Simulated assay, not measured.
Amino acid sequence: MNSEDKVSMTTDTGCDDVVLDVEGLRMRYGTTDVLREVTFRARHGEVLALLGPNGAGKTTTIEILEGFRMRSAGRVRVLGTDPARGDEAWRARVGVVLQSWRDHGKWRVRELLAHFGRYYVPYATEAVPRPWGADELLAAVGLSAQAGDKVKTLSGGQRRRLDVAIGLVGRPELLFLDEPTAGLDPRARHEFHDLVHGLAAEHLTTILLTTHDLAEADRLADRIMILSGGRIVADGTAADLARRTDATDEVSWTREGRRFTHTTGESTRFVRELFARHGEAIGDLAVRRASLEDTYLALVREPGSGNGLPTPAAAHGERTTEVAR
């Protein structure tokens, strides 16, 4: 998103910087606890990724925060309000991008955005003018060329951009994104990532996203929360979570015609010592850092393997292996 495509979207933070305040959240269906003691906070401008296997409770958590589902117990405040009691003025401050929807196929793109935008006019303030102008918003999501097209003629990727635009039309202070880049090609995905970074950094929009794309979560999120068995089993940056699980890097190299690999939690130190010992005899050096996927798999049990609590990290003792050639 280019600077000329952006508009001022200053958020009225008031005296309290906390946007999401969740403590002891529980959700029970019959005798089954879907969510158990879920607790976390988020502030203006934070991007949070909520990860977890299917059935972990992600959708239930999001629906409670959006005000679409009543919780069984716990304290929840979203923009200072209990979402179960949120009025229209509160809803005007929240944006939701669902995985997909297929209504309004006969509308033209600009007309549809302008139509939705009119609902936000009564909730405009000096700090947050609403709605976001249709043409500016189309430029921000890369749909200017399709402004006059009917929604039903858009490609899957273009429709996904429109979904995002509809979620943004009210200039939300808090944006929920459910699998936001599903169906986008690599270029569109990259542009969407830029849009998310701009919303958070320049407009202080708080963003909570769910995704199964761990690389995307690593790229977008300031914090990553992993939900498993109805509980938050990890909350922190990708680096924080990697340290928690003792995830290791893999170093590979060749020497005297032989290839070696070594796993270590201190790859920089190991490489320095390797060159001090063997110097120019070392070739084809490569370091594969521990990924968010490694960390995620260490923290979440496979479906059906137990109660969903974090798996104790495997003992990652340093070891060197010669690889057969």
Rank of each mutant, 00 (worst) to 15 (best):
Leu177Arg: 06
Ile207Arg: 03
Leu137Tyr: 08
Arg110Asp: 01
Arg75Ile: 07
Thr10Ala: 15
Leu208Ile: 11
Tyr120Asn: 00
Asp178Arg: 04
Arg319Thr: 14
Asp222Leu: 07
Ala315Glu: 15
Asp12Glu: 11
Asp103Ile: 10
Arg102Trp: 08
Gly236Met: 03
Thr61Tyr: 05
Gly279Gln: 09
Asp149Val: 00
Ser155His: 07
Ala92Ser: 07
Ser144Tyr: 00
Thr125Phe: 06
Ser155Phe: 09
Glu4Asn: 14
Gly45Ile: 04
Thr32Trp: 12
Glu273Asn: 11
Glu273Cys: 00
Thr295Asp: 00
Thr13Tyr: 06
Arg36Phe: 05
Arg325Leu: 11
Val109Arg: 07
His193Met: 13
Lys150Glu: 11
Asp249Gly: 06
Leu204Ala: 13
Arg259Glu: 09
Ala314Gln: 15
Tyr296Leu: 07
Ala165Phe: 01
Val7Phe: 08
Met70Glu: 11
Glu136Arg: 10
Gly30Tyr: 09
Gly257Asp: 12
Arg259Val: 06
Ser252Glu: 05
Glu191Ser: 10
Gly230Leu: 01
Phe116Asn: 04
Arg187Asn: 12
His316Ser: 05
Ala281Asp: 09
Asp185Glu: 06
Asp249Ile: 09
Pro129Gln: 04
Ala201Asn: 14
Ala314Leu: 14
Gly230Ser: 10
Thr321Glu: 12
Ala84Cys: 08
Ala182Ser: 14
Gly306Ala: 13
Met70Pro: 02
Pro122Arg: 11
Arg77Trp: 01
Ala134Asn: 10
Met225Asp: 04
Ala73Pro: 06
Arg85Ala: 12
Asp218Phe: 13
Arg160Leu: 02
Thr261Ala: 09
Arg223Pro: 07
Ala182Asn: 15
Thr10Val: 15
Asp240Arg: 12
Ile224Glu: 08
Arg93Gln: 11
Val121Met: 07
Ile207Pro: 05
Ala140Ser: 08
Glu191Met: 02
Asp240Trp: 09
Ala165Asp: 05
Pro122Met: 08
Ala188Tyr: 08
Ala215Gln: 10
Glu256Asn: 12
Phe270Leu: 05
Glu173Tyr: 03
Arg325Tyr: 11
Leu168Asp: 03
Ser100Gly: 12
Gly170Asp: 00
Pro312Tyr: 06
Ala221Gln: 00
Lys106Ile: 01
Leu241Trp: 01
Thr206Gln: 03
Arg130Ile: 07
Pro312Ile: 04
Pro312Phe: 07
Ala140Cys: 09
Glu23Gly: 08
Glu173Thr: 01
Val151Ala: 01
Leu79Thr: 02
Leu274Cys: 00
Val169Ala: 01
Glu256Lys: 14
Arg161Phe: 05
Leu48Cys: 02
Gly24Thr: 05
Val34Pro: 04
Gln146Tyr: 12
Val94Ser: 02
Phe192Val: 00
Leu208Ala: 02
